[in-house]
Design a protein around this nucleic acid. Structure first.
Lengths: 357, 357
DNA sequence: TTGTATGCGTTATCAA
DNA sequence: TTGATAACGCATACAA
């Protein structure tokens, strides 16, 4: 087994100094053509590559960005990762992944792990428990350490950083408006508890659209699911709740759900209750994942553009990272730029499928 | 903004030497209780944490493991990552992710990136293009550099390393046997091209089960999908092929598909052709993902246990990593242990749902 | 044109 | 009980 070769070994082997080797390999014109050739040939032969760790230590930057998300077995989040990874790699960065598993504590531990020199910046989406606790000190702490953060999807006003979100409010408005246009009179909503910002915004959009259409909101037609406790039989509970909801409100002829799982589950329940979709009830979900595409009937959704969110987040972060490189001093004192945080809003669009007319 | 504090700064502040600080923080009893107290208090106040990069350089180990997979927007792979991440974190490791996007070149580039000091070991699943080319030199190169590799799911005999696979062959046998027991006479197979080992093994299992049941295999009942070219309208092509396949073989009453997408698509096509599942045709897929659970009817599958594969892979890798720590010398000469590679086979099981009787 | 010295942040060895 | 020094691998300012 041949360990990776280092500058030192090349230097010894070729009987030159380490710095000569270093310069030759970076094509410095300080070094004569002869030695450069010799050194480069040797390096190539032994497949020399500079050690990343040493470079990181020297340059005080790792060229890797951390991702911290609540869950990876989730189409939306993996889509975002893919987007981040694409632009990160293109721009010469690596990607390191931490999972909070929706837990406040694990989010903090992971942040500290990452912030301890492993990464130059972080892209994250806040865990549910953190949202519930409303304790964001760990984010501010890392930012204060000089590690820029970009938040996506589940963001929060209390933290000053770049953000990438989807237009949850208007996405919901569009969806509900569409249901109204399609002739629905009693439009129900299945949503999450309010502490998840995206759920709250989508709920507001639902109410707004009803208002605009001159329909009075009816709180009976709103079902709030509490999925904070991640129990085994979550799915059964979900279906039971929806069943009761539908039975209590047999007049529902349109449904907007804030995610695709709720929408697909609702369709399943509706079918079991003998309803035909979209004839008896039209359904629109949020987030365009595999489920939407392959459900029966396939689901009309408000697309969330996860990959695009990832790409934007990565670009935002790397832009800021490389901006620091240039105007170092200014940037870190009390330059106004410090507070010019960008909020990118990605437009949603409705992808029509079979669950609406 | 306060940059992370270092040993040097603490030392200067407290007017002691760097090594005193270092020792005090690691509770060395060389240092007097007084100074230890003082130093630890100060460190805590400023939230001192040792810099990972410096530690990595010093210890020649990064305590992070690399994952290299073909695709992340894929339920199976994200499940595996979750498994890896769980045990990695528990055992004090971080996880860094690279995506090959099924490309040979990108796989190599990523391997080199990772192998350049960023990680202590790699867990990977081979890209399709690599499988097709049968060029595995990059894997062997990394192993020769002293970086252990664990392969999962898409593995290959030509590389000497630990492997974690699912019992593809027997899983397929079980599935097809079940169809036979359920009374199917003309059992079709939808599979991938043979160069993907898991596809080949599952195909062999299909043939084996037919043989055992005294049914003669009929090549007309086998549909091989070529998904090597990752085109936009892949789904349409898939459905078209399946439609032709079903029309050409109206006698099919049982179907085994080597992944859930094929199975679900087949069910959709079957329904369009007026067939009822499971009455007219029973279907079993491989891999237990979201689609299987939420399809209509829900799909009976052979479970692939992605998370368990991830956990096993991580344990295997970390075990080897920490074994190196101990018997360093022996391990790297020509110790027989060097060649004692482990192949973990995870048993499959059939999860019965509505697509079979 | 080449080499020496220094520093990035740590720990370990050895000297005081 | 404490501190100086070297080393991990690299890049670079400066000296020769």
């Amino acid at each position: 087994m041949k360990r990776k070769i280092t500058l030192k070994q090349i230097a010894r082997e070729l009987d030159v100094s380490i710095s000569t080797v270093s310069k030759a390999l970076s094509n410095s014109k300080e070094i004569s053509e002869d030695t450069t050739q010799k050194i480069q040939a040797f390096a190539k032969l032994y497949n020399y590559k500079a050690n990343n760790i040493a470079l990181s230590l020297k340059n005080r930057k790792t060229k890797t960005i951390g991702i911290l998300i609540p869950e990876i077995v989730h189409h939306f989040f993996s889509t975002v990762i893919r987007g981040i990874e694409r632009v990160a790699n293109r721009r010469g960065y690596n990607v390191i992944v931490g999972l909070s598993n929706e837990s406040f504590t694990k989010e903090i531990i992971n942040m500290e792990m990452l912030a301890n020199g492993s990464i130059d910046g972080i892209i994250l989406s806040i865990s549910k428990e953190t949202l519930l606790k409303q304790d964001y000190h760990h984010f501010n702490a890392t930012i204060n350490q000089g590690i820029p953060i970009v938040m996506f999807d589940r963001v929060v006003n209390e933290v000053d950083c770049d953000k990438v979100i989807v237009d949850d409010f208007n996405g919901a408005v569009k969806a509900v408006k569409k249901l109204v246009e399609n002739g629905c009179k009693n439009i129900a909503l299945i949503t999450t508890m309010d502490y998840v910002s995206v759920g709250r915004l989508r709920t507001q959009g639902y109410l707004e659209a009803l208002g605009l259409s001159g329909i009075e909101a009816n709180s009976n037609l709103i079902l709030k699911i509490d999925d904070s406790l991640d129990v085994e039989n979550h799915l059964d509970i979900l279906e039971t709740e929806i069943t009761q909801f539908f039975k209590a409100n047999p007049n529902i002829d349109g449904l907007f759900a804030v995610n695709e799982l709720y929408a697909v589950s609702a369709m399943k329940v509706a079918r079991k209750l003998g309803l035909t979709i979209p004839d008896d009830m039209q359904v629109i979900g949020f987030t365009d994942g595999v489920l939407s595409k392959h459900a029966t009937p396939s689901l009309t959704t408000v697309s969330q553009h996860g990959q695009k969110m990832g790409e934007q987040s990565a670009n935002l972060l790397i832009d800021r990272l490389e901006a620091e490189d240039n105007d170092n001093e200014q940037y870190f004192t009390n330059n106004p730029k410090d507070h010019d945080f960008i909020k990118v809003v990605i437009e949603t669009e409705i992808i029509e499928r079979e669950s609406t007319k």
